[in-house]
Design a protein around this nucleic acid. Structure first.
Lengths: 194, 194, 194, 194
DNA sequence: GATGAATGAGGCTTCATTCAT
DNA sequence: TATGAATGAAGCCTCATTCAT
């Protein structure tokens, strides 16, 4: 019983990972069930054993990816370092996601064009959860005198927004490495909150 | 002769405006030619009198909107004010677009999922043209000692990226007016370049 | 009254000539009313002043072309020369049509895929009229001892069929001139009837 | 594994056969995917499981039909009989195709109005392959003194052209049987090459 | 669990035709 | 006469979804 359950979940994960990649290369509309299946050497029909429909698959992609990102944020917040240090790490982490796993975060950008009403609520909730960790650190930083910002939420929007934009223009093998980018963004964005 | 040409262009504009609205509510995929036509009380087929195909229509939407925005930027840059003043105005303008005509800028975000190769070139060119006006002011500001930024292009990316994100969350009738937002963003983003 | 009538007919001729060219380059389906009109620097709509609909235009193309060809055949038959001489001239003429005005005869090949029932009758009648001139000469030739053929109709089918096929493969600027072809075909095809 | 592959091919054959019939009754334009499907009690969409698009289906129709005809020619050529005998059999065979499976050869007539560039090459190649078997026998006949013709290729064009024309006029249940026709054509056409 | 096959709704596009001006 | 504009039917094609085996 347990074993088969575990196997099922494992397979699901596998599908989700593969789907995420494809979805973000081609967009949620451009990626067809056929292609997603093909990448896994399955056939279209089989996907429906694991997921109710395409939207369900996309939804679970979203949940998985963002869930993981959240747990990473959580980790940084719990470290015993200054809020600035935390924020720097969180920024670096977000940028890494944006570039190395650019595929993943993409789907967050315009969920309302991808998901129907039923799915939209939990999606937005997860998104807020993610943002909340940034808010927490920024607020703490203000309280503890590290930051001076009066509108912490808007500051957070600026941080996330500017970073989400990176994938629009960044190309690996350009003149900047990821580390360069992480450093520059951290510096510039901290100027916003300080 | 001239008259009919003018009429034609006018109708095209009308269609473009309507299409822009729909495309940005539903995405370029979600908006069908049928719906775009219906909104104008036309039939599908009539659209093809004015535009070669859907991609052509979308392309012209893009050109029109961004072209107009560029001409506004140009205006600010030519005023006789400090670079900071210019940048503030450009930021305010971009934010206004992002909110009041949110529909328009939306289509800029992921052109490569909307457009085929032939159209991508001119689209990216226009986008760069728009960005170049920001670069110009930032660079000038650095030269004249108003700004201190070492990576002006990345700074510009941060500005635009953060502002483009606004439409993801901003709702009219919330607790912030557009003017509030313009002021806050200008203040925070200028901290980046200063 | 007369004058306007003449003008009308002239214009019709003009349209037919142009249509014939296009139809045979692109096929009766491939040639659109738009293109036919464009070639004449007209607009689609105007064509409907002169012709009831596309089929009507195509029909009149057919009538014109075949009518002209028939009158030429008639001319040869009335000359005072041997039946073999007549047949040679008729063959040469048909080949010239097939190549130089290949466009024209094309439409004869599969009329039932182009025309609806109403038009089919007169079309086939005209076709038979054309063929009848060949039959006449062949029969006369048999009567007068020039030819020996027992199945004059089938012989005629062979003649016309083989010549109609020319357009499938003949290319101007190849190694054979039209005159070469006319000579060779005349020689070979006369072997059939002799 | 093998079995499903075989089944697939079988179904493809079935579709091709049905398509050939329809295409030649209505022309490649007149025959719609919908009708082709309906004839097989399928739906439009299903056809696309077997064929990439309409052109692909038409192409495979062409390949199948001509391929079969070629293999038959090949058979006659390899028999140990005089070249005249061979040619007679090949003529009879072609005529049989032209009448009994008139549907099949029809599509060969104007491939350039049916197929786009990519498909045209292999189509013409196949056509030439078919013709080459006629050329071979005719040339051999000339070498061995059976035929006297100086332009064997043009002779072949005359043979094929005249036979392809048969379908334009021949009606079963007329006063000539197929066997009549085969005999008459063989006699008359051999006069050409002799 | 998996798959091959089928389906059908829906989208894009073409084009003959119409008609007011 | 001519045209600009609109229409709508019809065709091609895609793809999420279903289901018997």
């Amino acid at each position: 019983m347990k074993l088969s359950e575990i196997k099922l979940q494992k397979k699901k994960q596998e599908i989700i990972l593969s789907a995420v990649k494809l979805v973000n290369k081609k967009g949620s509309h451009g990626a067809t069930m056929e292609e997603i299946a093909a990448e896994l050497l399955m056939t279209k029909g089989s996907l429906y054993y694991y997921f109710k429909n395409k939207e369900d698959l996309l939804f679970q992609c979203h949940e998985m990816v963002l869930g993981q990102a959240i747990s990473e944020l959580q980790h940084y917040v719990n470290e015993v370092i200054s809020n600035e240090q935390k924020l720097r790490k969180m920024i670096a982490n977000h940028i890494r996601y944006m570039i190395e796993e650019k595929e993943t975060f993409n789907m967050i950008i315009k969920p309302d064009q991808t998901f129907s009403k039923d799915y939209l609520q939990p999606i937005l909730r997860k998104r807020n959860e993610y943002a909340a960790w940034f808010d927490k650190v920024i607020k703490k930083g203000v309280e503890e005198g590290e930051f001076t910002i009066k509108e912490p939420k808007i500051a957070r929007m600026i941080l996330l927004g500017s970073m989400n934009w990176i994938q629009q223009w960044y190309k690996l093998n350009g003149d900047k490495t990821i580390e360069d980018l992480q450093a520059i963004y951290a510096d510039y964005l901290l100027k916003v909150v300080k």
